[in-house]
C-alpha cells in the first residue's frame, strides 16, 4: 500500500479512522487503490497508481508533491471532474461519480463569474438550491462577513486583488455548506505576504466551520503551516510516498525547529 506510514504517535484526536487498513468506510474522504491512465494513440501515461489514503471528518489534509506527480489529477478525481481507471473515491461511504455540492471547490485562478458581483458570486450555489430572497441574502451576508468582504459586496471581480478574489472563491464554496472544501493551489497566484495572511484566515475559517479540508499545493512550507497530515506524492507513476502527521500547535512558526524538521523530512521524501 504505497508505503503509507503515519508517524503520528501520541494523543491526538480520532486517529483510528485515518488508518488505511480498510476500517475507514465512513471516513470523510476515502481514496481506495486509485489509478488513472491516459491513453492516446502514441503513448500511455499512468497519472496515478495505487493511491490510497483516508481523511477524517474535520481534518485538514494537504497533498504535496513535485509537478507531474498527479496531484491535480487526484484533486479532479475527488472533485468528480475525472473518473478513475481503477479504484474509487468514497465520501462518507458514498462513491463519487460526478461533481456535487457536498464538495466545495476553490481553484488557483479563482474561477469567479466575472459578470457577477461579489455577492452574486457567493449567491450562485444558493440560487441552485432554490433558496429564497431574504434567506439567501442573509446567508451571503454571513459568508462575506466570514471572509471580511462585506463592504465589497457590490464590486465586480475585476475590481479586486488576488487575495480578495480568493476570499470570494472560498465564501462561494462555503455558502452551500459542503462537507468538504477541496482547494487546488488556492494561494498560488498571490504574493507571499498575502498568502501568509490568507493562511491565518483559512485556519480561522476551518476552526469556525469544522469543515474537512483537502488542500493541494507544491509548497512544502505551506503544507506544514496548515495541515494535520500531509500526503506526500511521488511521480512516475503518481503515487503516495508517505503520509506525514504534523503534530504542532497552531499558529505555527516557520522559524521553529520542529517546523523545520517536518519541512526537511517532507523535502527529503520528495527528493528536493
Amino acid at each position: 500500500m504505497a508505503g503509507v506510514n503515519d508517524v503520528r504517535e501520541e494523543g491526538s484526536t480520532a486517529d483510528t479512522a485515518s488508518d488505511t487498513s480498510g476500517t475507514s468506510d465512513t471516513a470523510a474522504v476515502r481514496v481506495a487503490d486509485l489509478g488513472k491512465r491516459y491513453d492516446s494513440d502514441r503513448q500511455t501515461v499512468q497519472a496515478l497508481s495505487g493511491v490510497d489514503f483516508a481523511v477524517d471528518e474535520g481534518e485538514f489534509v494537504c497533498i504535496v508533491g513535485p509537478s507531474g506527480c498527479g496531484k491535480t489529477t487526484l484533486f479532479r478525481t475527488i472533485a468528480g471532474l475525472e473518473s478513475p481507471t481503477s479504484g474509487e473515491v468514497r465520501l462518507s461511504g458514498e462513491r463519487v461519480d460526478g461533481p456535487g455540492t457536498d464538495r466545495g471547490m476553490v481553484f488557483q485562478e479563482y474561477g469567479l463569474f466575472p459578470w457577477r458581483t461579489v455577492a452574486e458570486n457567493v449567491a450562485f450555489g444558493l440560487e441552485q438550491q432554490g433558496l429564497g430572497g431574504e434567506e439567501r441574502r442573509a446567508r451571503v451576508r454571513e459568508m462575506l462577513d466570514l471572509v471580511g468582504l462585506t463592504e465589497f459586496a457590490d464590486a465586480y471581480p475585476k475590481e479586486l486583488s488576488g487575495g480578495m478574489k480568493q476570499r470570494v472563491g472560498i465564501a462561494r464554496a462555503l455558502a452551500v455548506d459542503p462537507d468538504i472544501l477541496l482547494m487546488d493551489e488556492p494561494f498560488g497566484s498571490v504574493d507571499a505576504q498575502t498568502r501568509d495572511m490568507l493562511h491565518g484566515e483559512l485556519l480561522d475559517i476551518w476552526g469556525a466551520t469544522g469543515k474537512t479540508v483537502l488542500f493541494v499545493t507544491h509548497d512544502v512550507e505551506e503544507a506544514v503551516t496548515l495541515a494535520d497530515r500531509v500526503v506526500v506524492m511521488a511521480a512516475n507513476p503518481g503515487q503516495v510516498r508517505e503520509v506525514v502527521s504534523v503534530d504542532l500547535d497552531r499558529p505555527r512558526e516557520r522559524t521553529d525547529a520542529a517546523f523545520a524538521e517536518h519541512v526537511e523530512r517532507i523535502r527529503a521524501l520528495i527528493g528536493e
Binding site: 471547490m105 474561477g111 463569474f113
Partner: peptide
C-alpha cells in the same frame, strides 16, 4: 467559455444543460 467556470457551476449544483 472557460472550462473552469463550467466546473465551478457544476460543483455548485448546476446539473442540467439548460441551466
Amino acid at each position: 467559455v472557460p472550462t473552469d467556470l463550467k466546473e465551478v457551476a457544476a460543483s455548485l449544483g448546476v446539473d442540467d444543460d439548460l441551466t
